[in-house]
Amino acid sequence: MNLSGNTVLITGGSSGIGYALAEAFLAANSQVIVCARDADRLLDARARHPSLHTWVCDVSDEESRRNMFDWVADSFPGLNILVNNAGIQRDIDFTHGIDDFQSGENEIRTNLEAAIVLCGLFIPVLAKNRQAAIVNVSSGLGFVPSARMPVYSASKAGLHAYSMAIRKQLSSTGIQVFEIVPPAVDTELNPLGRAKRGRFKAGLSAATFVESVMKKLEGDVLEIGYGATEDFMRASRAELDRHFERMNP
């Protein structure tokens, strides 16, 4: 991937990994559009980077993401990179039945369905432009699931499978499909769950992680891990089972 001269749309781009990716693409002299649900955070992001284009969007909502697609397709017909980064993570305990799952935001809709729909919407736009790419941000938990976060883990496993499948489907179109597989990164993901675990804080910053990611994107590495997730991506089933037991004592 050539990091410069692109027009890039990043979902969930006002904080965390998405914001770090936005900064990195801007630094590489690409045009960047970010969407997020929080208008104030988008204003803050644009205040720090006036060249950033922003749009308020809840990617889990059909009308909201369709409105964003219409705006982007009309205003940025040269869009050549879509980054599906928006995601939510929740601790859900099914020993209490279904109530815990139904009482909060839907991880499947945000983490998996939104990425699938946005790919479907934007592929005709991407196919018209050179050096087109889709970048899906999954998770190490898509390879080794967490018992505390079963739905999040399942949604990211689904995104991994989808990324593999459309990479094959799109191989004749000129659209590359990348998958970024983060380990635990210091972001605001799952604040309630992290608070339960004593204000858990990952030791890896989003900026440091993205610095590594950008180098691998530039090298056309299609599945991008970091640290433990590089091991997960290459592990045998027996090794994955051992990782699972260690992660879920």
Rank of each mutant, 00 (worst) to 15 (best):
S51R: 15
K168M: 12
L43D: 14
L126I: 09
A28D: 00
P150R: 03
F232H: 04
S155W: 08
A86T: 09
E245Q: 14
E188R: 15
A39T: 08
K216D: 00
N84L: 10
A228L: 14
N190F: 07
D61C: 15
V177F: 06
T95N: 08
N2T: 09
M68A: 13
F200K: 12
P150Q: 03
A161P: 04
R41A: 10
A165W: 04
A28N: 13
G198F: 05
V185C: 03
L159F: 00
N85C: 05
Q89D: 00
I33S: 07
I134M: 01
F209R: 05
K215T: 14
L121T: 08
R237D: 15
S139W: 06
L121P: 06
A132Y: 04
G12K: 08
R246K: 12
G18C: 07
D99I: 09
R109M: 14
L9H: 08
V177D: 07
R237P: 02
L192C: 06
V83R: 06
S103L: 12
V83E: 04
P183M: 01
N2E: 07
S4D: 03
D44F: 10
E239A: 13
F94I: 08
P191Y: 02
Q89R: 01
A39L: 11
K196M: 11
E218N: 13
A27I: 03
V151D: 04
H49K: 11
F232Y: 04
P145F: 09
V221R: 09
A207G: 13
F101D: 07
G142L: 06
V117G: 08
I98T: 13
F25E: 01
D99C: 09
L42Q: 01
T11F: 01
A154E: 09
T7F: 00
R37W: 02
V144H: 10
Y19N: 11
D40K: 15
I88R: 07
R234T: 05
